[in-house]
Amino acid sequence: MPLPLTLAATASEQSTQLSGIAGWVVDVMETIGAPGAGLLVALENLFPPLPSEVILPLAGFTASQGGFTVAGAIFWTTLGSVVGAAALYWIGAVLGRRRLRTVVDRMPLVDLADLDRTEAWFDRHGRKAVFFGRMIPIFRSLISVPAGIERMPLGIFLLLSATGSLIWNTVFVLAGYYLGENWHVAEQYAGVFSRVVVVAVVFFVAWWVLRRVRRNRAAHGSV
């Protein structure tokens, strides 16, 4: 639904004060409305550099200005999350276990036993991983791929993705709605959380690689 004239003027003023991704997000929602917020979130799932921590509070802010209802913002952003997750699930399903094992078998430092342990873990905890993964930066997109590879029942995957996304989206849309022009406060807190997750992942990967290199050197040394 097109924005009312007065709101369009307000949104235009707001978009001129923003730059980069935030300005582009406002322009899209100004042009398309609530479905535009859903489209942006779907793209964020496929291209993680597009931060949901910016899109969702801005959707709430736009709702507070009367561009669309807060319920509409939550509905469309959650629908976008599910669409993006389903696309990544499909990519995982197309890749399949056989192709994945072929790729892993050719990777340095990784062996098929690692993949077997990962698959066993996903068999036990996959549903919790999909649900909670939708609320963790980086993993909110990536978790859909192993779900597709392991062929988690599609209905269960969509339900878990929708529920987890609904919680995450509601928190940030409402934060943007009630913070109004101070929506960026929500983005700042989410940004800190995202950076903590990124640092933790980097340290874990570095620790794992170092451990694996040492193990391989010890194995070669004992031959």
Rank of each mutant, 00 (worst) to 15 (best):
A147T: 03
Q65A: 13
V223R: 14
S52T: 04
D105Y: 01
L40G: 04
V173R: 09
G36F: 00
P108H: 10
I74E: 14
V28I: 02
G133L: 03
V198Q: 09
M135V: 08
F132Y: 08
F139N: 08
A218Q: 08
L174G: 06
I138K: 14
A120W: 01
Q65C: 12
G84A: 14
A175C: 05
A71S: 14
I74Q: 15
S161C: 09
V94M: 06
N169C: 10
Y178C: 02
E53P: 03
F68D: 02
A120R: 08
P2D: 15
M29G: 01
L18W: 04
H220W: 05
E181N: 10
L46N: 03
V185M: 02
L174T: 09
I156R: 13
L154M: 03
S81G: 15
R212H: 07
F193A: 08
I149Q: 06
T78D: 03
M29D: 01
R127K: 14
N45Q: 09
I91T: 12
A59P: 02
G148S: 05
G221N: 10
A37D: 04
R101A: 13
V199K: 04
T118F: 13
R151Y: 03
H220F: 08
A113T: 13
T78L: 07
E13S: 15
F139G: 12
L112D: 03
R99K: 11
T69Y: 05
S141G: 11
P4S: 04
L160Q: 14
F122N: 07
S64G: 07
P4T: 04
G84I: 13
T163H: 09
A162I: 06
I21E: 03
F47N: 00
V202C: 10
A71C: 11
I55T: 12
W76G: 11
R124C: 07
V94P: 02
L39G: 14
E187K: 12
P49M: 06
P4E: 01
L39P: 05
M1I: 11
Y89G: 02
L159N: 01
S144C: 10
G191F: 01
D123S: 13
P48R: 02
M135K: 10
Q17A: 12
R212E: 05
E187Q: 12
E187T: 14
W90I: 09
I21W: 01
S194L: 12
L174M: 09
R140Y: 07
G92M: 05
G92R: 07
V145D: 03
Q188N: 03
V103Y: 10
A87C: 12
L79H: 11
L154Y: 00
G191A: 01
P35L: 02
E53L: 04
L56M: 06
V83K: 06
L18Q: 10
P108T: 12
